[in-house]
Design a binder for these strands. Structure first.
Length: 568
RNA sequence: CGGGGUAUAGCGCAGCCUGGUAGCGCAACUGCUUUGGGAGCAGUGGGUCGGGAGUUCGAAUCUCUCUACCCCGACCA
C-alpha cells in the first residue's frame, strides 16, 4: 500500500475528550472517529487491526472445534420475555420497533437467539456436544459510555455458546475454551491473566475472566505472589484474619465521641487502632433491613454482599431517613449492640473481641464490646474486599493486586436458559432433558484498545507483530526528487509485497521529520528508511519500533533480513 | 438517573460580561524556497455561531426552551 492510495489522516494534537491513552492514540492515528456517544466509525487503518484480531480469534475458535455462524443483531422482544431477562438488563436494552409497531431489541447478547435456534435444530443427544460461535456487532445502552472503544455502546464481540447432555461434557468444552482464549491472547501478543469471576446477571455456576494487564484497567485483580490463585477483586475470597475469638478482657463501656463520624475519626479520638473497631452499614434487605458489619479498616465488597439471599439485589445502601428509623441515629454512630435488624458479620469480625462500635446514639460509641455477652449476629459471611498482603485463599502465598482490562469471560451456565426456553433433547433412555449450556464472550473491539494500552510509548503505538496494520514501513527520504531513492524504495516495495509481506510505502511529499513522527505514532513494527546517504554505500537503514535503534543493512540482504525479523 | 460543565471553520480555542453583521492557531488548497526529526514566506477556500422561540432598529452576545456532547457519581457479561 502506498500512503497516497490509502486514507491516512493523523493528528499532532491530543483530542480534548479522550481520557485514556488508547483512545487518544486511536483518534490521533485516525483508526477511529466518533459518530456519537459510544459510537465509533472504524477507518481503514483501524479496520486492518480489528480484522487481524478477528481472524486470530476465528482461527483459534475453529481449531477448538467451534462452528461459526451469524445471528441477527435485531431480536424480537418475545424471545426475551421467555427468559425474563428484560428486567435484568433494564435500560441497557435498546428497544426499537418496526413499521407495524412490533417490538425488538438490538441484541446486547445472544443467549436467547442461539437457544431458540438450538431448540429447533437439536433433538437428540447424538447431536451433542456442539459449540456455535459468531462475531457480531452488539449494542448495550451503557449509562455512561467512555474511554473510546474500551467502553462504547456499539461494539463487536465474539460470542460462543455450547450445548451438552451432561455437566461433565460442559466442563470439557469449558476447558477447551479456556485453552482457546489463552491461545488467542498469546497470539495477539498481550500479557494477560485468567481469574475467577463473579457470574453476575448472566447467571450460572463457574466463570473466569481473561484480563489484559494494564495500569488503566477498570478491574482490580488479586493474585497469589507464589501460587496459582487469581481472582477478580469482586470475587476474591477474603479469609478470616483471626483464627479464633479471644476471650473478653474489657468491660463494656459507653463513651462520648462528639462529632466523630468516621472510623478514622473515632479510632484516633479513642486512641485505638482501626483494626479494633467495627463499622456497620445498613442496606436494603429482601425482607427487612440488613446490617453488614466489617472491621474498621476493611471495605465492603458490594458484589459479594449483593449476592447474599437476605440482601436485595442490586445492593442499595439505606438513606438517611431509613437509617434513622432502623438504628435511631445517623450513619456515623450505628453499632451492633441492640440493633434490631438482620445482622451479617464478616468472617474476621466474627472472631473479634473487645472491639469498638457505634452506640446507635448520636455522638456515642461502645468500647470493650464482645459477641454473645453484649451483642449477637445472625450470619457470618465473606462480605469484604480482600487486601494486598493478606494470605491467599488457597493457602499458597500472599495476595498482590494488578489492574486489568476484561477482554474475555467464560461461563458454565448450566440449564438456566435451556429450561426457561424449553431447549431439550432426548437422552439415551429416550427421556426429554434440558441441555447444559456454556457461553464464552470475547470483546473484539475492546481487544484492540487493550493492545494499545499495553503497548505504547510517548511517541505513539507499538503494535504487537501479529496485529499491526502493516508489518513494514518504507520511508523514503526525498522520494519526489531523488530518482535513485524513488527507484530503491519502489523496488523494495515490490519485492516485499511479492513475498506476501504487508508493506506501506510513504510516497507523500512531506518532510522527513514529519514522516518519521507519523510512523512512530502509527507504530508499524519494522521501518526501512531509504535515503541518499545510505544508498552511497548501497545500504538502507532499519529500525524496529520497540527500540528505534537504527542499523544500516546492505540492499542485498535487507529482504532476507526483514523476512527473518518478521518470522521471529 | 443525580450533580457539574460545554456547544463559534475539519481540530483546539477567543469573542459573549458591556448587543452593531465573526476572529486566532493548527489542518486543508495554490505558488516559491527548503529537504534526515512535526519547515519558511506569500496567498486562497471554508462558519444557518447546536436547534427553535422571544426581547430589540439590530442577537454569537440578553431571555426562555429543546437537543447533543463531556466530566464526577451511582450502574455495568
Amino acid at each position: 500500500m502506498r500512503t497516497t492510495d490509502f486514507h491516512l489522516v493523523t493528528r499532532k494534537e491530543t483530542p480534548q475528550d479522550a481520557e485514556i491513552i488508547s483512545h487518544q492514540l486511536m483518534i490521533r492515528t485516525g483508526m477511529i472517529r466518533k459518530l456519537g456517544a459510544g459510537l465509533y466509525t472504524w477507518a481503514p487503518l483501524g479496520l486492518r487491526v480489528l480484522q487481524k484480531v478477528e481472524q486470530i480469534i476465528r482461527e483459534e475458535m475453529n481449531a477448538s472445534g467451534a462452528l461459526e455462524m451469524l445471528m441477527p443483531a435485531v431480536q424480537p422482544k418475545e424471545l426475551w420475555e421467555e427468559t425474563g431477562r428484560i428486567e435484568d438488563f433494564g435500560g441497557q436494552l435498546l428497544a426499537i420497533h418496526d413499521r407495524a409497531q412490533r417490538d425488538y431489541f438490538f441484541g446486547p447478547t445472544h443467549e436467547e437467539v442461539i437457544t431458540d435456534f438450538v431448540r429447533n435444530e437439536i433433538n437428540s443427544y447424538k447431536q451433542l456436544p456442539i459449540n456455535f460461535y459468531q462475531i457480531q456487532t452488539k449494542f448495550r445502552d451503557e449509562i455512561r459510555p467512555r474511554f473510546g472503544v474500551m467502553r462504547s455502546r456499539e461494539f463487536i464481540m465474539k460470542d460462543a455458546y455450547s450445548f451438552h447432555l451432561t455437566q461433565d461434557s460442559l466442563a470439557v468444552t469449558y476447558q477447551k475454551m479456556h485453552q482457546a482464549y489463552t491461545n488467542i491472547i498469546n497470539r495477539i501478543g498481550l500479557e494477560f491473566r485468567c481469574v475467577l469471576a463473579d457470574s453476575g446477571a448472566i447467571g450460572g455456576s463457574g466463570s473466569q475472566e481473561f484480563h489484559v494487564i494494564a495500569d488503566s484497567g477498570e478491574d482490580a485483580i488479586m493474585y497469589s505472589d507464589t501460587g496459582d490463585y487469581a481472582a477478580n477483586l469482586e470475587k476474591c475470597e477474603a479469609v478470616s484474619l483471626l483464627n479464633e475469638r479471644a476471650a473478653p478482657t474489657a468491660a463494656l463501656q459507653k463513651v462520648a465521641t462528639p462529632e466523630q463520624k468516621t472510623i478514622e475519626a473515632v479510632a484516633s479520638f479513642l486512641q485505638v487502632d482501626k483494626t479494633s473497631t467495627v463499622k456497620t452499614l445498613l442496606v436494603e434487605g429482601t425482607e427487612q433491613p440488613v446490617a453488614l458489619v466489617l472491621r474498621g479498616d476493611h471495605t465492603l465488597n458490594e458484589v459479594k454482599a449483593g449476592n447474599l439471599a437476605v440482601v436485595a439485589s442490586p445492593l442499595r445502601m439505606l438513606n438517611e431517613a431509613e437509617i434513622k428509623a432502623t438504628a435511631g441515629c445517623d450513619a456515623g454512630s450505628i453499632g451492633v449492640k441492640d440493633l434490631h435488624c438482620l445482622i451479617v458479620v464478616d468472617q474476621t469480625v466474627a472472631n473479634m473481641s473487645d472491639f469498638v462500635c457505634g452506640a446507635n446514639e448520636e455522638g456515642h460509641h461502645y468500647t470493650g464490646v464482645n459477641w454473645d455477652r453484649d451483642a449477637t449476629y445472625d450470619l457470618v459471611k465473606d462480605i469484604r474486599d480482600a487486601q494486598v498482603g493478606e494470605p491467599s485463599p488457597d493457602g499458597v502465598g500472599t495476595l498482590q493486586m494488578a489492574r486489568g482490562i476484561e477482554v474475555g469471560h467464560i461461563f458454565q451456565l448450566g440449564n438456566k436458559y435451556s429450561k426457561a426456553m424449553n431447549a431439550v433433547v432426548l437422552n439415551e433412555q429416550g427421556k426429554s432433558q434440558a441441555m447444559e449450556m456454556g457461553c464464552y464472550g470475547m470483546g473484539v473491539t475492546r481487544m484492540v484498545a487493550a493492545a494499545i494500552e499495553q503497548n505504547h510509548d510517548d511517541k505513539g503505538i507499538i503494535w504487537p507483530a501479529n496485529i499491526a496494520p502493516f508489518s513494514v514501513a518504507i520511508l523514503p527520504m526525498n522520494y519526489q526528487k531523488s530518482q535513485r531513492v524513488k527507484q530503491a524504495a519502489d523496488q523494495l516495495y515490490a519485492e516485499l509485497t511479492a513475498l506476501g509481506i504487508e508493506v506501506i510505502l510513504d510516497d507523500r511529499k512531506v518532510r522527513p521529520g514529519f514522516m518519521m513522527s507519523d510512523f512512530e505514532l502509527l507504530g508499524i513494527p519494522h521501518q526501512v528508511i531509504i535515503g541518499d546517504r545510505a544508498l552511497d554505500n548501497d545500504e538502507v537503514e532499519y529500525r524496529h519500533r520497540v527500540d528505534m535503534q537504527s542499523q544500516n543493512i546492505s540492499r542485498d540482504t535487507i529482504k532476507s533480513f526483514l523476512s527473518g525479523q518478521i518470522k521471529a
